[in-house]
Design a binder for these strands. Structure first.
Lengths: 344, 344
DNA sequence: ATTAGCACTCTCTTCAAATGAGTGCTAACA
DNA sequence: TGTTAGCACTCATTTGAAGAGAGTGCTAAT
């Protein structure tokens, strides 16, 4: 059977209506509220076809139809019209000068959640492939050294090291020079064992400090590996009856709290996403079990200096795809501009 | 009417039973499962008295009784027997060497949530009254200065400043000396305008850097003012039907996500709490609206160096007070020991 | 003072009937 | 041949009544 123009229009009408109401939509509704000027009986015939083709389904005999995952997929891929309105206010809220990355990210998810009424998440930009800018050791107590590690993109890590022997200023200076000479400009994941042992040798009796610093560098990175993720609007799921029953809500909320699964999801999305950087997972397409009744829309963003992260929106399958995609696209642009203007 | 020994015993039995089951408890149950050896009829009379006195109440005629807030209060104040068991395993999990404060705190709430099956929260130790240890300015780019600010207790803040004029090494050294001479050892909330303008004067043409650094110090502190709070086990509320309906769950989850109200609650609790540092809010006693059907138990903890924070547990009014208080007390001790062993 | 007994109250469950939205099919129509 | 009106049918949901069950309050006996 062929999916002709009229069938498409009806499918679109079914989906649009279902997105709004969340209720199964019947032939009469379509007949009345479209400009097709067809009777409900005709619509019924067409809907029977659409069901046979797998684009819509009936929760039970004598109920209206709801879109299937396949139907949503078609809609997202070919029928969506991005909405661009309502986005302007968002712009203004974001552009307020933000000093700290953390605050910025929290702000983004919060505004996004308020704006869309879905649950939102963002992964902080990854610094993995970035280069070490410099390392500085300073004494804070007789037996404690503060190591400040600056990574390209001005990401800063601190670490306090306890040492057994006291280090005088001169030794500290030497160690500083040693570390910086060897490590500066190096991608953090390219520090290898050979290099470390060489440096240890040069450090002589202070070799244990060197390895402690390197551990700290590794630690700093690894710690970032467990990926910072901010979320907001989790309780928006209660707005959608199909997600709000105890079982599902509890699972979802747990996922949002644990954050680990979100991390994997966002990371996957970040690497998979096509040319626009926007990715839509419908129902079971999402790798996360607890989201099998949700849709997830993700957008990769870039903050310059190779710092990439991902934003995600989680809502019911009948989410307003048009609006969500439009909003996410705006944020992408916005972040891009933000970086250009202010390379903090 | 007097609350004699027998009435107390009956009240206690009602509460104990209700804590377990969450169902209204009837006279027959009490008669059977206590060693009072009284018939249900007698119990009924006593229960009628207890109701009149306001310690228990009936959800409707011909239902059993449930404890009122006043009843819980009496129980917590005079009848509780702290449970000490199950606490040992917790000990082991905590004592695993933790390097980062953040990780430690996250670990605590997580273990606590798993252990108690309630929602948990912790406020990071406040550094407000602490003294500045030192400040260090370093150049990272021609026009960017990294300011590292170390506060007593080895709390570290970083800030990157953009400067218009390029600063040579010597100027930077001078500024470092200037800042450290004036500010070291000073409680961060005692830096006043007079001091700032004096330092600006001494800095001459670089006065704007000085004020930027001081702003950064202030910012670093203020940013900590908006109090880091970690939570865990939010979805545990779904275990208790009296909290799990959509309306309540949504509000609670929102409170846990927003964290701001939690901050106020924990801060209040921290200052109010009596000699043991443990505080119990029952129902409407809690200042937080969304927790009017919950009980909240908080415990102040200290990490040395004047760093104080608060742990909180949120559950249904029928929470296992005995166990919760016992567990919190253990954690207090545990954290105390942790600090003594390892003053990071 | 305690208890047995009983009528009474109120919630909750169960079940059947009524409701109503929506379908599929057939026959008529343009 | 595509479209439509009409009608019987299906099935989830609502409604209301009946009944069960838990528990109480009160009275009278111990």
């Amino acid at each position: 059977m062929e999916l002709d123009e009229r069938k498409k229009k009806i499918l679109q009408a079914v989906i649009r209506n279902y997105l709004e109401t969340g209720e199964p939509v019947g032939s009469r509704t379509i007949s009345k509220y479209t400009d097709l000027n067809l009777s409900s009986a005709t619509i019924r015939n067409e809907m029977a076809d659409l069901e046979e083709m797998g684009y819509i389904l009936q929760p039970h005999t004598s109920a209206g139809r709801i879109p299937s995952d396949k139907g949503y997929r078609l809609y997202v891929d070919t029928m969506m019209e991005e909405k661009q309105r309502e986005v302007v206010e968002m712009k203004e809220m974001l552009v307020e000068r933000q000093d700290k990355m953390e605050t910025l990210l929290k702000q983004i998810v919060k505004v996004l959640a308020q704006n869309t009424q879905y649950a939102t998440m963002i992964s902080a930009p990854q610094t993995k492939r970035n280069k070490l800018k410099f390392i500085q050791l300073t004494r804070v107590e007789a037996d404690q050294i503060l190591a400040v590690i600056v990574i390209e993109g001005n990401v800063i890590k601190n670490s306090i090291l306890s040492v057994n022997e006291e280090l005088d200023d001169e030794t500290l200076l030497k160690l500083n020079i040693l570390l910086n000479t060897h490590l500066n400009g190096l991608p953090v994941d390219e520090i290898n064992l050979g290099m470390i042992s060489m440096m240890k040798q040069q450090a002589g009796i202070h070799s244990d400090i060197v390895s402690e610093v390197i551990d700290a560098v590794a630690e700093g990175i690894r710690n970032d590996e467990d990926l910072k993720i901010y979320t907001s609007g989790t309780n928006n799921i209660f707005r959608y009856p199909e997600l709000a029953d105890q079982q599902k809500a509890s699972e979802l909320i747990n996922t949002f709290e644990e954050k680990q699964l979100l991390g994997e999801l966002l990371q996957d999305a970040g690497t998979e996403s096509g040319n626009t950087g926007i990715q839509v997972y419908i129902g079971a397409e999402s790798p996360v079990q607890s989201m099998r009744d949700c849709s997830v829309v993700t957008a990769a963003y870039e903050l310059g200096g190779g710092m990439k992260g991902t934003i995600g929106i989680v809502g019911p399958k009948r989410m307003d795809y048009d609006k969500v995609v439009g909003t996410l696209r705006t944020i992408q642009t916005q972040l891009d501009e933000l970086y250009r203007k202010d390379d903090r």
